[in-house]
Design a protein around this nucleic acid. Structure first.
Lengths: 135, 135
DNA sequence: CTGTATCCTCTCTGATACTG
DNA sequence: CAGTATCAGAGAGGATACAG
């Protein structure tokens, strides 16, 4: 997406989002889902082994981390390198595509992080207005 | 969180994501959730009334659209303008903050949309490798 | 160590019906 | 038109146990 197609791209995006949503929606949900976001953010720092990643993404269960990583690997965002030793040693890292996505994701996260106070203020205002009506 | 924080922001981001995740995670999930994404994308085109929005975001139920819009309004991403007429007329639009977020979101969506083919290829490769192992 | 399998809970979601 | 209320099903998510 670039240059003079800016306008066209925007309109087509909208069409795409709602017409071909089927294709991208699923992918997007892997990326933006609760654990997908955190896994990609963690891997943006560098490669990690399964349990290291699990400690990094605090609160994730074994099951969900495995599930998330499989989805991301299948989508081509994450590379899985397994050494067939005993005990097994598996390292996860971002692919080129995964790094791009993680970058965009990071921009979005940074924006939201930077505005959390605004959001919290908005929430307080909203809740106050609500309870005022209730009275 | 302000001023010249480019470098610091990245390192702190990582800390934030995992330490204060509580604060931003919830917000991020409203934004990136199934309907939040689509609602913001739709409103990026301009203001819409409830049912117009509902037709635009194809597949959303009354309930989920109302729920999504309330969450986004409470977070300060969406502005709700209600005329107290009969029948009621309510218009939804993006706030300045909402527009910023929608922009970042659009970048992410565009990236994913543009790479859907790569993802689908990765999926085919992954599934093939899987079934090969099964044999 | 790196997962898979199972069971169980709890939230999200959608269909339906109803209110202002 | 713009929602709210309620209910039931589907799926996400977590705890535990076990396999390679």
């Amino acid at each position: 997406m670039n240059g003079s197609r800016a306008e066209a791209a925007h309109h087509q995006l909208v069409a795409d989002v709602f017409a071909r949503a089927c294709a991208s929606r699923g992918v997007l949900e892997h990326v933006t889902g609760r654990w997908g976001t955190l896994a990609l953010a963690a891997l943006a720092e560098g490669p990690f082994r399964f349990n290291a990643l699990r400690r990094k993404v605090d609160g994730v269960s074994e099951k969900m981390l495995a599930q998330t990583l499989q989805a991301l690997e299948r989508d081509g965002f994450v590379h899985r390198e397994a050494e067939p030793t005993i005990p097994p040693r598996v390292e996860y890292s971002l692919t080129a595509l995964g790094a791009e996505v993680a970058g965009r994701l990071r921009e979005l996260i940074e924006l939201v992080e930077g505005r959390v106070q605004e959001v919290e203020a908005a929430r307080r205002a909203y809740d106050e207005a609500k309870s005022a009506v209730a009275r």
